[in-house]
Amino acid sequence: MTNEAQAAPREYRWRMPANWWTRNRHYFLYVVREFTVVPIALWLLWLLVEIKRAGDGPARYSPHGSAAFVVFSVITLVFALYHSYTFLSLAGVIIHFKVLDRPLPSRLIVLAQFALWAVASVVVGFVLIWFAR
């Protein structure tokens, strides 16, 4: 073979256009989902700051409670619930359990997880309210 025959033909390099995430509804929802973690991360950072301040002693601690922060917290809660929902639904699909050699239906796994989630929320809420009194 001569060099001429071996020379690779010039290929056109495909590049993702910058607006790729606007081209398809699923891509768009995916990007939205990814971006919802930003407010959640900010809120958690603020929580760390609050914990640090609470560590300085109860006398000097007064939690931040402006109306804007409450609104921000509610939005963040919605995002966090959305993530929890997608995570738990997905986990039900990917987890495999076999009972008596038969695969457990994924709906049952999803339901069990949501039940666990609800129980855990009640327990945490109870602990918070009980000790806050």
Partner: peptide, 20 residues
């Protein structure tokens, strides 16, 4: 986990599930 792989698969394979 964009999940689009499983949407476009012409043979009903669920690669997104396989990956997770």
């Amino acid at each position: 986990f964009v999940g689009e792989c499983s949407v476009v698969c012409p043979k009903g394979v669920d690669p997104a599930k396989a990956i997770q």
